[in-house]
Design a protein around this nucleic acid. Structure first.
Lengths: 204, 204, 204, 204
DNA sequence: GATGAATGAGCATTCATTCAT
DNA sequence: CATGAATGAATGCTCATTCAT
């Protein structure tokens, strides 16, 4: 498993301030107070480093945000992509996608919460192209699978911009609710329901 | 009260600054710059009113936020609720819910975008109870319908905290994408697809 | 005499912080430490006002700079222009120009030093147009006088962009030296020499 | 050493970072952004060298400033002094002084602009004595010539602190205007006018 | 009620300089 | 000699909020 376990807990880790440590602290603060309410000084304080060092490494608050966002994106992708690639049929790919997505959210609730928060900042900032490219990559493989299913007559033909919403919309919606404590049951408790619903939503 | 057409456009309306006018300007600014980046002074300037008047009417920035949020919530509810109430069967209720939700988003994109943004602020602030009460009301009628469907054997039995995500998750996900210009097709172009997917997701 | 005597001394004046008082303190600080080395906080401290009030009145450090610069320009113009207007012949106009310029520098050494320092900041900033307009006004009347002299055959014809340098270049150069304590004698001690030199420089 | 042609253009020169190269880049930056707005880091970046190397060679930002200033001063002096020394009479000396000064400004506009800017920094810093000594040297030879002229009855007797302003004030004023693009004609276009005006200003 | 001048804690960021390697 | 990560005091500026008129 590639997921860096260092992002779960803020306490441990080397005392010497390094990029990794700062990012861990930043994530904890963004999660606790929100992105706007988190200050560079607050992170610096907890990370026991200097302002100069922070700016040396990340350039700006936006830079720190983007660095963390892309770590999260890569972490998520590293878990999800193999599941899609290794699946033998469309339904397997969908099960892999949703199962690993729910898994990741439960494993990394802070990163997940952060991604929902930070998306609009990163999408508006100077890293939007890098973001678009990753999203392309994220759904590229899956889309190929779905087209096979359409040709084989098991998946309904529809505008391609609809598939993502039909497949992960329900899972994502529930994850948001769980991450905000509006529901109790862990997303992974309902994996089979979300997989079944996703499959029904696009199948013939 | 039907959808107030005054929230679509910032230009017209009475020159005299009143609560309504201020709220309209505030919505435009929150939509343009985001909630944190919008300042009271910026709203005051465009609304051609005074700081004193703003604080007289809304008490604080949080107060302004909450006022606007509940207007949005009520506006949405006013369109959706009758559709659920008047439906004759579960499938009709679901079609009404989703159809009117998509309709509202297309009619009020700024309010819709604002609601997604503001939810976390209002949920964290002193109006959280009022928010919970409205959400209860929003889904109460629907839930009764769904229980009938379960009893009649047309709807699958599952934890009730799942229904909302399974029904509107896909629509909401697509609406978010449309409101961020990540997809082209209007949500209402795909109403039947979202209704069908929602129904399949929860039906036996 | 229109020159505001309040700009000579920083100590006296009303205890209540107002725009005038802040400008007086700012001038003293710019004069003592230079423009870049003077901080808003330093001015605020000595002016016994608040940061908020400073920004309420002047908008920015550049705004403060420009406000002071135009006060200086107007103060100078108020002394010089009447001398040129009231002169009966070209030589009288030149004597009036140079005499009153030297007079002003000796009366207002801080403002004079500030103008030399601040010119490049104001000329680069958003008030450059206002500056160009005032300079136009400053030399307009004089230029008309000189053209009469050319027609009457007492003044040499030459490109008009040369006159200003030939007339005030020497005085200005000496004033700069005096304001930097590189020379001892007051500019006004040598008025007749500078007038004579200016006249000879452009006469037939 | 004649005018180092390396100070006109920033592009060419050895790729290997040396003192000369750094100074050339520094001059370009001081000229573009002004002295205060130019940062050591900015120079380091363009000069493709290291912070450590910069401090090894120049000790501090002030040290860099002074090094460049004295290079400029020497460069100017190297062009001007021979003209004064070789002149056969006072008028010839003045023509040489002014002609070569205007020539230098046109040849080295960046150095000229820099000298006007940097004077106050260097005069206030720890190199003020070296500066005073060079200025002494600059005008020493000329002053001897002028005294001869006074004795011969062709030059007016006046306080010696006036001569410099009367001679170069007009030229310098015009050069400042040209360096700031406030006038069009090159200083050297008007050499004879400035020489004539200077001579008239001090002659009997 | 209405107004807007005044407040000041707090923020992101800069930058000359040091020093261990 | 060369390097560049680390430092942290200092700066210009923002903005929600108060309150005297």
């Amino acid at each position: 498993m590639k997921n860096p376990d260092t992002f779960d807990r803020a306490e441990p880790g080397p005392r010497k301030a390094n990029k990794r440590h700062v990012l861990r602290v930043a994530l904890a603060q963004f999660d606790k107070d929100g992105i706007d309410a988190t200050t560079i000084e607050g992170i610096r304080d907890l990370a026991e480093t200097s302002i100069g060092s922070m700016y040396h490494h990340f350039g700006s608050k936006d830079g720190l945000l983007a660095a963390l966002y892309f770590i999260a994106l890569d972490d998520q992708l590293a878990l999800i992509e193999p599941q899609i690639v290794s699946a033998s049929d469309p339904r397997g790919a969908i099960a892999g996608l949703i199962g690993s997505y729910l898994e990741w959210v439960v494993q990394q609730p802070k990163l997940a919460r952060f991604m929902f928060q930070a998306r609009s900042y990163v999408a508006a900032g100077p890293h939007k192209d890098a973001l678009a490219e990753r999203n392309q990559r994220r759904y590229g493989t899956l889309l190929k699978r779905l087209r096979e299913g359409v040709k084989d007559g098991v998946i309904r033909q529809m505008p391609s911009e609809l598939y993502a919403s039909l497949l992960v919309g329900q899972s994502e919606n529930y994850c948001r609710a769980w991450l905000s404590s509006r529901v109790q049951g862990k997303p992974t408790d309902y994996t089979s329901i979300f997989v079944e619903a996703a499959w029904r939503s696009i199948s013939k």
